[in-house]
Design a protein around this nucleic acid. Structure first.
Lengths: 182, 182
DNA sequence: AAGATATGTCAACATGACTGACGTAAATTT
DNA sequence: AAATTTACGTCAGTCATGTTGACATATCTT
């Protein structure tokens, strides 16, 4: 009744419509591709539910998270990290400023800059959401030994593009001696 | 110049605006949370670029992927997997049908069902996109031994909600003896 | 025959992304 | 000192993808 019919596909699996060297299906990492999809879907799903209560979306979460974690982040840095346009960021940032989750401070050296900081209200929101996600991660790591955990960390790092890293990635990869809020 | 000011946050890191037991910052898995964000961002970024050339978006990719991988998937199954509404799926699915990437077949036992299959054109698209993502995964796994790879797989599986698994998750977790296209 | 199910469709709307242009203040370069 | 560049904000318009709720049709189940 809710069964999927897996028998005989009407199209041959080996027929290809594209030119050039197409990778063969047998070499594909379907397993990891799909696990990443589902893992990420449920990982962000934790926060999505909470955010509804605040009238916020994922965009607000991402902004709050990085502002909290990297105090004094500039607007330009945030644009690099989130890879969205000024317009998109502007809308979300304005809401967070208006509702008192984030405050701006004029840069000391460069007065054009607006350095961003989380207010206590903003910190509480970030902590709540990170708590949910940390719970999931901790659960997932429960039966994994330190070597396994190291492999997971190494794998995730290696999945990230390292050409032209932004401010936050530099901190994560320890390129400079950037300090991050613990 | 593009430096981030990490010194003295204007708000105390320990001040909390929320009631109840708030997890302390020191217990948070900021590392994994952020690695997942960046890893997934770049992982889906591979496909996004290619999709532009086809005039498609991520939604089209997700539909194509699961239809290819689980031939004969029903519309209802797809709704479960993608966790979107009928409306949203309908728009995307209609395009893919109209443009010949997917075909429908009426169910054998239940003639109300529309079983979905990828056409050769659709298969080529999925293969192209999966190839890009597989390349990234293979690169990331290059220096990781089999035990590490097992830990990664175990971790990703454990990150996924197991209550009320859909058709595809049942196949992935081998609950039944579902066959999947290799 | 009545009811439940699978799918498709309509209207209306929200969010978060985009482009391109323009303005202002402040820093930097000439 | 003047010209240019940079950092940021904003306006107008568009697009992709998600939402809700209602309703129609064919088909299966009871």
């Amino acid at each position: 009744m809710t069964d999927v019919n897996f028998s005989k596909s009407p199209t041959a699996p080996d027929s290809q419509g594209a030119a050039g060297p197409v990778p063969r299906a047998g070499e594909m990492r379907w397993d990891i591709i799909e696990l990443l999809f589902f893992a990420y879907r449920d990982f962000v799903g934790d926060a999505d539910q909470e955010l509804e209560a605040f009238g916020f979306g994922r965009a607000h979460h991402r902004v709050m998270h990085f502002v909290y974690r990297y105090p004094g982040l500039k607007v330009a840095d945030l644009l690099d990290v989130l890879r969205i346009t000024k317009q998109s960021l502007g809308r979300v940032l304005k809401q967070l400023l208006d509702e008192g989750y984030i405050i701006q401070k004029t840069g000391n050296n460069d007065r054009r800059q607006r350095l961003l900081y989380a207010t206590p209200k903003g910190e509480a929101l970030v902590a709540k959401l990170a708590g949910l996600q940390t719970d999931r991660i901790t659960r997932a790591l429960r039966d994994i030994n330190p070597e396994g955990a190291a492999a997971i960390s190494q794998f995730l790092r290696a999945m990230i593009d390292r050409d032209d890293p932004d401010k936050v990635l530099e901190a994560i990869f320890g390129i400079g001696s950037k300090k991050v809020r613990e």
